[in-house]
């Protein structure tokens, strides 16, 4: 890179960042304004498409998380002689970290990618302009219900994922360590509170909101042909994943201070 190209690159990057964050703020602001008059049908469609249809995927994720957490910790449980605390340790790591994080990453791909692709192909095909032409607000009709549906879906899926993952953990602990299910759930029940569960659900809701905002913005900003649709979907997935890690970093200490 030539020396003269560096200021140009920095300027272009800063401009792009400002535009993107402005677009995100616009989507968030207009969604909040639209909350009272959401299109019911579109909201239900979003909940079915993003939430209900993702149930099998979240079941698979829960199974893999639950089994893997116990497999990996079983070594230390034996080494430190902490069998009685396994229920708490395994439940804690699923609810606080691995449940929201892995669910968020998978939903970024599934829901975020699909949302961005749908909006981008409507945008590229001129259908959004068509809606404006017959004086319908594409935002109220297409965007706000999706943002609400995605956030609610991810939070709802999180509860299902937590429950399934903990059940699988109990099963895995029984089969690998011979730990009675009663002992597992005793420490789970005694040492984990409502605050821990709330933290996990709030974290997942925030991840869902981020995925929705980023993917919607990426879809609405797409310009061009088939390539632009692919690019919007890819950008939505990548930026949502990056944002999930950054948000995890901010939310974990914050929720930890607030709820425990």
């Amino acid at each position: 890179m030539r020396a003269s190209a560096i200021p140009a690159w920095a300027g272009a990057t800063a401009l792009e960042a400002a535009q993107a964050s402005g677009a995100l703020a616009m989507v968030l602001g207009r969604t909040i304004l639209q909350l009272r008059s959401l299109d019911r049908r579109e909201l239900v469609r979003g909940l079915v498409l993003f939430g209900y249809r993702s149930l099998p995927l979240s079941g698979v994720i829960a199974t893999l998380i639950g089994a893997t957490v116990v497999l990996q910790t079983s070594l230390y449980v034996q080494r430190f002689g902490a069998r009685n605390y396994l229920g708490w340790a395994a439940g804690f790591s699923v609810v606080w970290e691995f449940g929201p994080l892995l669910l968020g990453l998978m939903m970024a791909a599934r829901v975020g990618g699909r949302n961005a692709a749908e909006l981008a192909s409507l945008n590229v095909g001129g259908q959004l302009d068509g809606l404006r032409g017959i004086s319908l607000d594409p935002f109220a009709l297409l965007v706000a219900p999706r943002v609400v549906a995605t956030s609610l879906s991810v939070a709802g899926l999180a509860t299902v994922t937590f429950a399934l993952a903990v059940l699988w953990e109990a099963a895995a602990a029984f089969f690998t360590l011979g730990l009675p299910v009663r002992v597992f759930f005793e420490s789970f029940e005694q040492l984990l509170g409502f605050g821990d569960l709330a933290a996990g659900v709030i974290k997942s809701f925030c991840f869902g909101l981020t995925i929705a905002l980023i993917s919607t913005t990426a879809g609405l900003r797409a310009q061009g042909g088939a390539r632009a649709v692919g690019h919007a979907a890819a950008a939505a997935v990548v930026w949502s994943s990056a944002a999930i890690f950054a948000l995890d970093f901010i939310l974990t200490p914050l929720l930890g201070a607030l709820l425990t």
């Binding site: 995927l57 698979v60 994720i61 893999l64 892995l102 990453l105 998978m106 791909a109 599934r110 990618g113 699909r114 961005a116 692709a117 749908e118 981008a120 192909s121 590229v124 095909g125 042909g225 088939a226 390539r227 632009a228 649709v229 692919g230 919007a232 979907a233 890819a234 997935v237």
Partner: peptide, 23 residues
């Protein structure tokens, strides 16, 4: 198909890849 097929290929591609990594 058209532009919509590209979008769904991206979504399915990432979901398959990520799920495969977990498995």
């Amino acid at each position: 198909g058209g532009a919509a097929a590209v979008g769904s290929a991206v979504t399915l591609g990432v979901v398959d890849a990520a799920l495969g990594c977990l498995v």
